[in-house]
Design a binder for these strands. Sequence first.
DNA 1: CAGTGGTCTAGACCACGTA
DNA 2: ACGTGGTCTAGACCACTGT
Lengths: 242, 242
Amino acid sequence: MDADSDAKVGFRPLYVQVREELKRHLSSGRWQPGAMLPSEHELARELGVSQGTVRKALDELTADRILVRRQGRGTFVAEFEESRILFQFFRLRPNAGERLFPVSRIRRRPSGPATATEGAALRIEPGTKVWRIARQRLHGPNVILWETIAVPADRFAGFEDVAEFPNIYQLYAHRWGITITSASEQLRAVSADKTDADELGCPVGSPLLRIERVAFDINKVPVEYRDSRCRTDQMYYSSDLT
Amino acid sequence: MDADSDAKVGFRPLYVQVREELKRHLSSGRWQPGAMLPSEHELARELGVSQGTVRKALDELTADRILVRRQGRGTFVAEFEESRILFQFFRLRPNAGERLFPVSRIRRRPSGPATATEGAALRIEPGTKVWRIARQRLHGPNVILWETIAVPADRFAGFEDVAEFPNIYQLYAHRWGITITSASEQLRAVSADKTDADELGCPVGSPLLRIERVAFDINKVPVEYRDSRCRTDQMYYSSDLT
DNA sequence: CAGTGGTCTAGACCACGTA
DNA sequence: ACGTGGTCTAGACCACTGT
């Protein structure tokens, strides 16, 4: 880790190089989710930089929720605990009452060649094989949304016969070593068609919130596309502008 | 600025105290939007702390978009330029084509006592007077949403006769010294009623995106409640989960 | 008590913008 | 050339956690 290694061309601060080096270790699997990293001083010694520089790199990875730091304990690779999913990736909240973890119920697995939309979202050629799962999600006893999830088949070997799972992003991490760190959503109001009405138990023509999501891994590569239709009579979508 | 001033009780890091001190200067109007702050070294001397500590405080205020820093130029109080509004507070984007600044057209001013919803959102007693403006917003020639904005009358003296304005948050800042720094939105899909249909030029019963927003000032005090109904045939709402 | 992250300092040097 | 923010260092000390 030499400060002058790319001095003239571009100029990348040392801490950026450290951050990218740590990211490489993370995506290569040197440190698994939940594992504790070496201490700041130890990393600084390993990499030949000062402790303050390592700290700046670790702070940025913490801001991206890739790491979790706990004073007195250490620095850990972030996991997909229930609470994180509930707050970071599931934006539907009940109008009143307790927030619950959304239980899911698989309905179909209509895998096949990628549509134009899926291809564009996942940056793969349309026609490339994708695995798909169609499922309902429940808040207590009520179906609040149904959605189709599509992932590129080549990055998810064996996806076609996964059983029910409590948390799909945890599954991505444990089974395929793919960590979802961010997502981008597009929201629209649409009218329920026949399928929507069947899945959600609402009248045809009632207003639904349609959410299209593209989820990205640690390297900002898109790895999942999902299309959800939500009832918003008992729930709302929460968005914070900061 | 004494590091030991509240040693036993709680413990607040020095940089937090510096940050709050700077915030006080900002909300008291010592530094107006667009103004340049003293340099890091000068602030450090003024406050009797090291430059690194000032830097940490400034970095946090920059992360909250309260300040803007430009290498080689200085540190400035953030303003509501068009681009900032367009990206930070206006989340509707066209399905295709250029992103435009949403022109607004005032329709009515139905001011009066706060409803229960407004009171809860603005943390004031229901029945307290609020100013309201109902307006349409346009993307090019098309009306894409209409909304009602409510603000507490006591913090916005003279609001009842403001003319058209290009940007309402800029108006809040310049006329009342109130800077909006964050907002929280609740989204639902609803059916267009008669009023919606008239304002938006769409059929009664067509699906609309309803957005309820509470906007906060620099001290996290709610200062505005707005209720918008949006057509999402040509536009979508963009949400980033990070 | 030992080990971890968190804060704070003082000073050096670099990159950027402007004059 | 100068002043600004940005990076980097080395070292000290504090706060928190578990043994």
